[in-house]
Nucleic acid binder design. Structure first.
Length: 633
RNA sequence: GGCGGCGUAGCUCAGCGGUAGAGCGGGGAUCUCAUAAGUCCUAGGUCGGGGGUUCGAGUCCCUCCGCCGCCA
C-alpha cells in the first residue's frame, strides 16, 4: 500500500484563523486528496499550538484562564476547516495529555543522552513585556512597547546543543537536494548553517511562565516554544506507543509558510537525529499572501477571515483561487477583486460554461441520456489526446506542488474543448439530423467532463462531486486517477442531469469609494428604484444567536453574540419585544457589512432585520434551520 | 552591516545567450448550444538606470537606484 503522511504546522492560538492558515491547510488537503486519487493511504495532521507566554497574555487581556482561552480559539480553528471542505485525519492540540507525555519522554531521552545542558543566560529583560529583548528590538536603548530601559538579567535555562549536528545536517542537505522545496529555501538554510548554530534555549523557569509542559527531570522549568510544538508531528501519529507511527513517519512531508523555515529546517531535523530517528522526507515551504487593501471590500477589514470568504464566495472558489493564484514558494497578492476576476474567467466562463452547455445540449438533443457515439474522427481523437496529455502534465505539476501550473494546463484543455464545441457545432448536426456524428461529439465532451471532474476533485471537491453526480456517476466509484484516464467509462443510455450552473458568474465588484455627491445628484432625478447591483452591495446572512443579554441602563437594547459563521457582537433595539433567553438558538437575518458602530459603549458589528407593524415587532427568521453564515439574497 | 531575491505590456506573471511572451482587463469581429458566457483577431512594452563581456544580452559580469526577505 502506498502511503502519505502530510502535516500543516500546528497553528499558534494567539490569533484567530486567517488567510495564511487557510492557504497552508488547503494545500495540505489538496495534496491529501490528490494522493488519495492515486490510491495512497493518507494521514493528514493539523492542529493547534497552545503553550507559551503570548497565550497567557492574550488570555489575561480577555479575562480568561489560559485553558478557557485556548479551548475557545482551538475550537475556532476546528470549526473553520470544514467550511473549506478540509478533511484532516487528526486534529492535535499541544495541551493534550498524550502530547505532553511525548514531549516529556523526549526531553528525558535527550537529557540522558547528554544533548541537553543547563546553563546561564544573560540578556536584556523587559518586565513590562515579561521577556528578553534582542538588541535589534530596542529603540534608543528602550523597550519599543513600554518606553522603559530593559534590565540586564541572568537566568538559568536548559539548552539544546545544535552545533554537534551542524555538519551532519549540511551533509544531509547536500545528499538530498529536494529535502527542502522549492530550492531557494534550501539555499537559505545552507546559508544559515554555514554561519554556525548557537545552542537553542528550550526552557523557561516556572516562576516566569507556568503555561507549558514541565521538564520531567526539573519541576522548576517548562519547555518553551519549538521543542514542544515540533514534536506534534510525532505525537500526532501515536509515537512512541502505537507501533503504526513508524509506517507514517517514513513518508512524512511537512507543509509550512516561510516564516517558520528555521525551526523546521534546522531544529527539527537535528532533534530527530539526536533522538536516533530518521528525519522527515520533505519540507514544502510557501510564501506570504500580501493583502491588497485597495481591492478589498471594506467589511473584510484587515484580517481576511476564511469563514467570511467562504460565505461570500463558496469554498471551492476560494480553494481554486488560492491554489491558482500563488506560485507555491513565492509571495502572491490577495484581493477579492482578483478572486472574482480569476474565478469568473476560469471557473464560470470557461469550465462551468463548458459543463453547462454540454449537459444542456445532451438534454435537448439526446433526451438527457448519454448518446450512442458514432465513429471517431481525427478531431475527436485530437481532443481526447490533448486532454489526456494535459492531465498527465497536470499530474506531474501536482506531484511537485506546482498547483498554479497544473491548473493552467487544465485550463488550456478546457479552452480546447470549448473550441471543439464551436467547430463541431452540435446544433448544426442536430438540425441536419446527423445523429451518429452528434452522438460522438457529445459523448466525447461528456467523457472530457468526466475526466476533468475527477482530476479537479482535489482542488474543488464539492463541485467535482456534483458534476460526477450530474453525469450519472458515483463519486465513490470514479474518484481514481487511473479510472479517470480510462476513456469511455460513460455508458450510452445512462441518464444525465443538466443541474444548476456549477459556478455562477459573479458581478464584477466595485471597490472604488462611491462619490457621494454624484450619487445623491443622480438619485434626485432617478425614481426611487435601484438596479440589482445596489441590493447586492449588502451582505445579508443568516446568523445564529449564541448569547443575549440586556445592555445595562437601557430599555430597548440587547447585546447579542451571533455566529455567521464567525462570532460577532450586535446591538439590537428589540428588548421591548424579546427576552434575552428566548433568543438564544434562534436564527435571524444579519446585515453583515454595515459600518460598525459603538452603541452605549458596545461595538455593534451589524444589524438584525425585523418587521414592524401596529402589533409590534417580529424578527425575520429562516423557515427552517440553515447553516450559520448562509447568504440571504 | 552581511547574505539572498526581485524590478519584463494597464494588472498578475513566464522567459534566463540568438528576431520580446501568456492570462486577465481594454478594443474589434463572429457563432447561438451556453452562466451578457464561447470562438477568432488585436496590446507595439528604452525587458529599473548606466557600463562591460560577446558576432549577438531581459537572458552572463560590474555598478547605481528602488522594493523585499533572512541574518547580525
Amino acid at each position: 500500500m502506498k502511503r502519505s503522511y502530510l502535516t500543516t504546522p500546528i497553528y499558534y492560538v494567539n490569533a484567530e484563523p486567517h488567510l495564511g492558515h487557510a492557504y497552508t491547510t488547503v494545500v495540505a488537503d489538496t495534496v491529501a486528496r490528490w494522493k488519495r486519487l492515486q490510491g495512497y493511504e493518507v494521514f493528514f495532521l493539523t492542529g493547534t499550538d497552545e503553550h507559551g507566554d503570548k497565550i497567557v497574555r492574550a488570555a489575561e487581556a480577555r479575562g480568561l484562564t489560559p485553558r478557557e482561552y485556548v479551548d475557545r480559539i482551538a475550537e475556532k480553528f476546528r470549526q473553520t476547516w470544514p467550511l473549506l471542505h478540509i478533511q484532516y485525519t487528526r486534529f492535535i492540540r499541544t495541551t493534550e495529555p498524550d502530547h505532553k507525555r511525548v514531549v516529556q519522554h523526549v526531553l528525558q531521552l535527550l537529557y540522558e543522552k547528554g544533548d541537553i545542558s543547563f546553563g546561564e543566560y544573560e540578556g536584556l529583560y523587559c518586565f513590562g513585556c515579561e521577556r528578553f529583548l534582542t538588541r535589534k528590538e530596542l529603540r534608543d536603548g528602550l523597550c519599543p512597547d513600554h518606553r522603559t530601559p530593559p534590565t540586564p538579567l541572568r537566568e538559568s535555562n536548559y539548552f539544546f546543543d545544535l552545533s554537534r549536528y551542524q555538519n551532519w545536517l549540511i551533509d544531509h542537505l547536500q545528499k538530498h537536494p529536494d529535502f527542502i522545496q522549492p530550492p531557494g529555501y534550501r539555499e537559505e538554510v545552507l546559508g544559515l548553517l554555514r554561519e554556525g548554530l548557537e545552542p537553542l534555549c528550550i526552557s523557561r523557569p516556572k516562576s516566569r511562565l507556568s503555561w507549558g509542559i514541565e521538564f520531567p527531570f526539573d519541576p522548576n522549568y517548562v519547555t518553551y516554544v519549538w521543542f514542544d510544538a515540533l514534536l506534534n508531528y510525532l505525537s500526532g501519529i501515536g509515537y512512541p506507543d502505537d507501533p503504526s507511527w513508524e509506517k507514517w513517519w517514513q513518508v512524512a512531508e511537512h507543509i509550512i509558510a516561510k516564516d517558520i523555515l528555521k525551526p523546521h529546517a534546522i531544529y527539527w531535523p537535528i532533534m530527530l537525529r539526536a533522538l536516533g530517528l530518521p528525519v522527515y522526507r520533505r519540507l514544502h515551504v510557501h510564501g506570504y499572501w500580501n493583502l491588497n487593501q485597495a481591492k478589498m471590500s471594506k467589511s473584510l477589514g484587515n484580517v481576511v477571515r476564511p469563514g467570511d470568504l467562504v460565505s461570500r464566495y463558496g469554498a471551492d472558489r476560494v480553494r481554486y483561487f488560492l491554489l491558482r493564484e500563488m506560485a507555491f514558494g513565492q509571495d502572491a497578492e490577495f484581493s477579492e477583486e482578483a478572486l472574482v476576476l480569476r474565478t469568473n474567467a476560469e471557473l464560470a466562463n470557461d469550465f462551468g460554461n463548458l459543463v453547462f452547455r454540454t449537459l444542456s445540449m445532451v438534454g435537448k438533443y439526446c433526451q438527457g441520456r448519454v448518446p450512442v457515439p458514432g465513429e471517431e474522427t481525427p478531431e475527436d481523437r485530437t481532443l481526447k489526446e490533448r486532454l489526456l496529455s494535459a492531465v498527465e502534465n497536470f499530474a506531474r505539476e501536482m506531484d511537485h506542488f506546482r498547483f498554479h501550473l497544473g491548473l493552467s494546463l487544465l485550463n488550456e484543455a478546457v479552452r480546447e474543448a470549448n473550441r471543439y464545441v464551436d467547430h463541431q457545432a452540435p446544433w448544426e448536426l442536430n438540425k441536419k439530423g446527423k445523429q451518429d456524428r452528434l452522438g460522438r461529439v457529445l459523448y466525447t465532451l461528456l467523457e472530457a467532463l468526466r475526466v476533468l471532474a475527477v482530476v479537479l476533485w482535489p482542488i474543488i471537491p464539492r463541485s467535482s462531486e456534483l458534476l460526477l453526480g450530474n453525469l450519472g456517476l458515483s463519486p465513490a466509484e470514479e474518484l481514481s486517477l487511473e479510472r479517470a484516464l480510462t476513456w469511455g467509462r460513460l455508458k450510452p443510455g445512462q441518464e444525465v442531469q443538466r443541474g444548476k450552473a456549477l459556478f455562477p458568474r459573479l458581478e464584477r465588484p466595485s471597490f472604488e469609494v462611491p462619490d457621494r455627491e454624484k450619487d445623491s445628484a443622480e438619485e434626485k432625478v432617478e425614481e426611487k428604484t435601484y438596479p440589482l447591483e445596489e441590493f447586492k452591495k449588502w451582505d445579508l446572512r443568516v446568523a445564529e444567536i449564541v448569547a443575549a443579554e440586556r445592555v445595562p441602563g437601557t430599555d430597548r437594547l440587547l447585546r447579542l453574540t451571533v455566529r455567521c459563521p464567525e462570532e460577532r457582537t450586535v446591538v439590537a433595539g428589540i428588548a421591548e419585544h424579546y427576552r434575552p433567553e428566548e433568543l438564544v438558538g434562534k436564527q435571524v437575518v444579519l446585515v453583515a457589512n454595515l459600518k460598525p458602530a459603538r452603541i452605549r459603549g458596545v461595538l455593534s458589528q451589524g444589524m438584525i432585520l425585523a418587521a414592524r407593524d401596529e402589533k409590534g415587532l417580529k424578527l425575520l427568521v429562516p423557515e427552517e434551520t440553515v447553516t450559520p453564515g448562509a447568504e440571504v439574497g
